[in-house]
Amino acid sequence: MLRYIAKRFAVAIPTLVIVSIFVFSLQKMMPGDPAVIMAGEQRDPQVIAYLREKYHLNDPVPEQYAFWAGRAVRGDLGQSLRSDVPVLDLIGDKLPVTIQLAVMAMIIAFAIGIPAGIVSAVKKGTITDYVANFVALSGLSIPNFWLGIMLILLVSVHLGWLPASGYVPLTEAPLRSIETMLMPAFVLGTALAATLMRHTRSAMLGVLQADYVRTARAKGLGERVVILKHTFRNAVLPIVTLSALLFGELLAGAVLTEQIFTIPGFGKLIVDAVFNRDYPVVQGVVLCTAIGFILMNFFADILYVVLNPRMRESL
């Protein structure tokens, strides 16, 4: 097991190095001189010269990368050009907000997607299956920012049930916080629910044809026990791996959802940084997202082995 973990970790390292090269080279794609852009409207030659010196922009590109990567490894992703706050502090401030949104969205996605997938597989070929499939495909085809706008129109503007925007920290007023996050989490959760439903259905259909399921039925076990204990338990493994992949989808979805519901999270941070031309923040967010995604994949791979006795034995 330890050897497997070490092997997976060894694969993650070159990926991380390439991600860092990519994030660094984003700056090089920028039209114009980064120092001039960073110097703002005044474009004072002395400021430009100072910035070139500070960020080693006069050095050859490989040295610039080594300098940038060296600082990033020590947790220094630079300062925001807008607020002068260290990028890592900004990310640290915004991340808990997005994590709350992501956890609530995940709960909604699991609550809808998994039961719908199980029912759809068990009732394959019936009207229930067709309806569930169509709803799932619709969930994948509706742009979540539009769903958000429509829900604001219906639930907030017309019915006045939930606030249209804003954020209350969970530590300040837990109930109010959940209330303000409910609609954004639903918007984010429905797209994931659709993906989860399709994968659960497919995994369940594969297992339903297995010999041990037929044996369980032949033994006279109740359908409920056959489905939940014998089928779902064995179909759950690919869903575990999928959950890690959904993390990336969640973060991408959060960018738009936070924008619509004005939630001051990680997603809004990157959009605001893009419009303020705050490039160190954009780079920092992309780097942290990629690291988070690589780590989630790493843990999902390990969890897959831990949960799957056959995989454990083959190691």
């Binding site: 039209p31 960018v255 994949n297």
Partner: peptide, 24 residues
Amino acid sequence: SRIVDALLSTPFLILAIALAAFLG
């Protein structure tokens, strides 16, 4: 394959936003 792994480790939309932001 390692380059592809690295690119796939950044969510599609975030990667597109970052590229669009830097390209203009």
